[in-house]
């Protein structure tokens, strides 16, 4: 399977406050890739790098089998992009904006655009400056979808939208993907939203790619364990211990958050003289929070 996006050892520094550090990321073709991370973690910067809007200090980028920035014009013709902040011209009407956008994209599909306009209830005569946030969000997704892209890059597309609009936007996107098999790269800090739709997930924090794995592994592999008589040393554990904390008022019982867990690993505890009392599935949000917590240095965690 080829990859829609490949980032290798991407580095970029903005003053002293922020840097992308050695970000290597692979988005398989045809998947829906959720790009998670708290605000300011570097999600938008990473997107702008592979959209050719910013130049990395080092590293290489390939999108749709073309190098960035050399093949950027060809790449952009095949990419539908919804940026973090609306980028449409406020003094135009919706239909004027659509005409403007259409003139740049040879694969633009008028019939599909008209259908989307009806489905998303976008008024073509409305001036963009008068659109609500939700209507603007719908227009942006309409513009991105109607150009029939092979890759959709959505940077927080539903941030600040009400649940109804959010569902409309995601449904339109998923319908398009199921029809065409396009790849979707969607960044968000709304973890639950991605949980339902993504099959791959990457987690950014402080300019690092903390984890990148199939959604199933992410959801099933991160567990909360309750362990009694836990050993102090866990270097030989078959799983990855993200965090451990002693439970209040329960003597020697501890709560562990682990990654890469499989049920066959239960025997490990008997081998080290401990007792595994409970294994609890974490939902994506808890897993996400634990992953971030474990990836941060102790000083940052105390903050």
């Amino acid at each position: 399977m080829s990859n829609a996006i490949e980032l290798k050892n991407l580095c970029w520094k903005a003053g002293k406050s922020f840097a992308l550090q050695d970000v290597s990321l692979v988005v398989p073709s045809g998947c829906i890739y959720g790009f998670l991370g708290p605000n300011g973690s570097g999600k938008t910067t990473t997107i702008r790098m592979f959209m050719g809007m910013m130049k990395p200090d080092s590293g290489s980028i390939r999108v749709l089998d073309r190098s960035v920035p050399e093949g950027m014009t060809e790449i952009l013709a095949r990419v539908g992009y919804v940026p973090e902040r609306p980028h449409v011209y406020p003094a135009l009407t919706v239909s004027e904006q659509i005409r403007w956008h259409r003139s740049f994209f040879s694969r633009w599909d008028d019939a599909w655009a008209a259908e989307l306009m009806g489905r998303l209830h976008v008024d073509p005569d409305m001036k963009i400056s008068r659109l609500s946030k939700g209507q603007t969000g719908k227009l942006l997704i309409l513009l991105a979808l109607a150009q029939r892209p092979e890759l959709l890059v959505l940077d927080e597309p539903t941030d600040g939208l009400d649940p109804v609009v959010r569902r409309d936007v995601l449904t339109a996107t998923l319908d398009y993907v199921s029809e065409t098999g396009a790849t979707v790269f969607i960044s968000s800090h709304l973890v639950h939203e991605l949980e339902r739709i993504c099959d791959w997930v990457g987690v950014m924090d402080h300019g690092h790619l903390v984890a990148q794995l199939p959604m199933n592994d992410f959801k099933n592999g991160i567990k909360r364990l309750r362990v009694t008589g836990a050993p102090a040393e866990t270097a030989d554990a078959p799983f990855h211990l993200l965090s451990r904390a002693r439970d209040n008022g329960t003597g020697s019982t501890e709560t562990w958050i682990v990654r890469d867990w499989e049920d066959t690993m239960r025997s490990y505890f008997a081998g080290v003289g401990a007792e595994l009392r409970d294994v609890v599935d974490l939902d994506l949000e808890d897993g996400f929070v634990e992953l971030l917590r474990s990836s941060r240095p102790a000083s940052a965690r105390e903050e």
Binding site: M51, T73, I75, L76, A77, P83, H87, V88, Y89, P90
Partner: peptide
């Protein structure tokens, strides 16, 4: 004017050199 206001994000996302 409009491109400056939008930090050139739109212009840079268009498939034209």
């Amino acid at each position: 004017n409009w491109d400056h206001q939008l930090n050139h994000v739109y212009a840079l996302s268009l498939p034209v050199p």
